[in-house]
Design a protein around this nucleic acid. Structure first.
Lengths: 199, 199, 199, 199
DNA sequence: AATGAATGAGCATTCATTCAT
DNA sequence: TATGAATGAATGCTCATTCAT
């Protein structure tokens, strides 16, 4: 319990520090200070610096999966489900800039290092998209010739690039609402089965 | 001439090393060895390690801009132009894994550091997409209510995520051709002005 | 306590190493080895190499000031006070060759770097001489037309040059006693044969 | 001839650079630039960096010996000769700050390195003082119990400390004239108020 | 469990020196 | 003679990790 608390405290601190400085520029002592523990204490809960990074992902992405999943169970319509995913994802990213940065930057930077590991958790998150699409296809809402494995990449990539720019504060031209509308418009009108023409 | 050669030789070596190890894990001595010059020689051509990274981007992305632009001038149709961009981008990424990795990983990792700088060159590349879209809107081919600034992110993000997975060798399920078809299908059918129904 | 010990241990080691090799030729690792600590440990107590030099001065000169001052309070006669200063200074220099070298060599070498800083402590030491002279003038023992500010330089310079040669082991012709006698003789009454007064 | 010119040009440049930055902080390229030759050219005239330092001394001190000697031959009075030495030395030091710095700083810094070598030339300079004193003793002008070997150190040390402070621009309270008067006064007749002779 | 002082491997960068031209 | 591009050894400092307390 107490141990679990400290574990989380360190992960939260690490998320903040990684986001601010990047993995390689982050110091263990930075994380320790942020978590208000001694440097050595960190090694009671993690094997090494990289292990912290892994845990940050594990933790944060699990949380994202949970949140998104919770929202999705309430909505059966695959069309709306996709919008919910987009909304949830972008909202979380906008709300938690630290998390966004870590996802954005560290995910890439360390991908090769993480590779085997990370796939599980992170893939699980992205696979939510393909699952939605498959469901939609089963319900004759999404085109059958769309490859869920490719579509999930396209959809996630679009959201990811949007939030990348946000996290850099490079563009603030559009609201979250407007952006989602555009993304969904582009994506949905494309993957939807065209309504049959009545002649 | 000679100097220019060495400059390029170092950039190519750096691209390779950065791709393989990432910026922070790359050693100057690695780059020097790869370029077959002495460590000190590198500092005759670059101010510091980070300057090499900047130069790698500058060089590589300039080259990408040039290649893509050259292909585009031959094709006036905005619909096909978008496909050409996608094809060129994914092909370049698939062909030059080193470059892909650098773009993928370092672009993010170092974005905060690069920020102001990088925007110029990299933004120039992505803006090719929005320019195509604007042209297509002017020609009544792309829907007028599509925001080119958002669409370019969605389109690039989709391609980027695709090539990210490729560069990790995580997925090789689909051919380039098939993938592009899917991406274009998703994206185009969405942004195109629906042809009016004739009844 | 423990920390203070290590601080002093490093300063002593640095004094020895600086004396032996000079500031620029001294390696941090030399000092660390001499102090029997790890290289990194030095940076727990000092900001950088130059800071060590500063601290060596601070420490050593403070000690000299203290020793000289302690001796002087016991002797009210300004004439003897000057001799005490000379004796103390030369004895300390002879006894602690390392210190002498550091004072001799580093004081000059780094003066421009140290300038503002060092003046305080080192000037304080030299000003002991001018203070003695001023007291002597007030007691009608030293000539009123002597400028204490110039005389202190002449007196210190003489001692300094003597100990410089000693520390180089260039000359060992005279004993400390004899040398001091000569110096005091010259300084107090001059080298000229007094012209007989005609009355 | 041409070669000799370049040799001197480099020495002059080195004197300037050593004075400004100190031996260890001076770069060969600094000297080359100052001398308006290529870096490599310096190695046609000197064996290494340290050799340049040696040559700078050799050159400069030789010049000082020559100048002082020239002035002394015109004045037979040992009392005035000492004043001439002081005046010449301080004037040269004040006029040529670069030289002064090199003498001041480098002389000490590198003494151990130079030791054997330098003694010859530099000792020759200081021995001018002891020679004057010996002459004065032979003429019954200077006290016979004064050790010329100690007196020369005292006299040179006094002048040296004065010019050290000058070269640091730490004190500008007194004119050269006034300073020399004081130094000569102290050295020749001492700081003590003469006790009246009881006859 | 917690601490934080100590460790020491590791690296970007500099610069005296060389040598092909 | 003269050049200056190239070399590569050398080092101050950092920081992840350990371990005595």
């Amino acid at each position: 319990m107490k141990a679990q608390d400290k574990h989380i405290k360190i992960i939260n601190a690490a998320t903040k520090v990684f986001a601010k400085k990047g993995f390689f520029n982050a110091r263990i002592s930075d994380i320790a200070k942020e978590a208000k523990v001694a440097d050595g204490t960190i090694y009671l809960y993690f094997n090494n610096k990289f292990d912290i990074l892994i845990s940050v992902f594990e933790e944060e992405i699990s949380s994202m999966i949970e949140q998104v999943t919770n929202s999705l169970v309430l909505e059966p319509d695959p069309k709306l489900q996709l919008r919910i995913f987009a909304t949830k994802h972008l909202t979380m990213m906008k709300k938690n800039k630290n998390l966004a940065e870590v996802i954005q930057i560290e995910l890439r930077q360390s991908t090769k290092l993480i590779k085997d590991y990370r796939n599980n958790k992170f893939s699980e998150y992205i696979d939510i998209i393909s699952t939605i699409i498959k469901n939609g296809q089963a319900q004759n809402i999404y085109r059958a010739d769309i490859r869920p494995g490719i579509a999930k990449r396209a959809f996630f990539g679009a959201l990811d690039e949007i939030s990348r720019v946000w996290s850099l504060s490079l563009e603030t031209d559009y609201t979250v609402e407007e952006t989602i509308n555009q993304i969904m418009d582009i994506f949905l009108t494309g993957v939807l089965i065209p309504t049959p023409r009545t002649e």
